[in-house]
């Protein structure tokens, strides 16, 4: 699974993307976040306030309980500030 990070989430984690192989226990975005925060303190800090985290699956905005699998591209980012 390709996972992308943008804005300060990218800065906190220290990378803009990575490839992850998920085990069978990770079925939703929520499961993925719960896994990511166990990697190290940087991830934990990045995901410490979930009210300011948005996520997409294959470039569409989705909810935290969205089902995911290894072929998906998941992205994490703060609220957009375009225009």
């Amino acid at each position: 699974m390709k996972v992308l990070y943008f804005s300060w989430i990218k800065d906190n984690i220290g990378k803009n993307e990575e490839d992850l192989s998920l085990n069978d226990n990770i079925k939703t975005i929520s499961d993925l976040i719960n896994y990511l925060i166990t990697i190290n303190e940087n991830y934990k800090k990045a995901f410490s306030d979930m009210s300011i985290i948005r996520f997409s699956k294959n470039m569409n905005l989705v909810n935290i309980d969205e089902m995911i699998d290894n072929d998906d591209e998941i992205a994490f980012f703060p609220p957009m500030t375009g225009g």
């Binding site: 943008f6 804005s7 997409s56 980012f77 703060p78 609220p79 957009m80 500030t81 375009g82 225009g83």
Partner: peptide, 14 residues
């Protein structure tokens, strides 16, 4: 369109 871009356009400003 511009109201939408402000909050839903996938851009981030530094």
């Amino acid at each position: 369109l511009i109201d939408w871009l402000k909050t839903k356009g996938p851009f981030w400003k530094y």
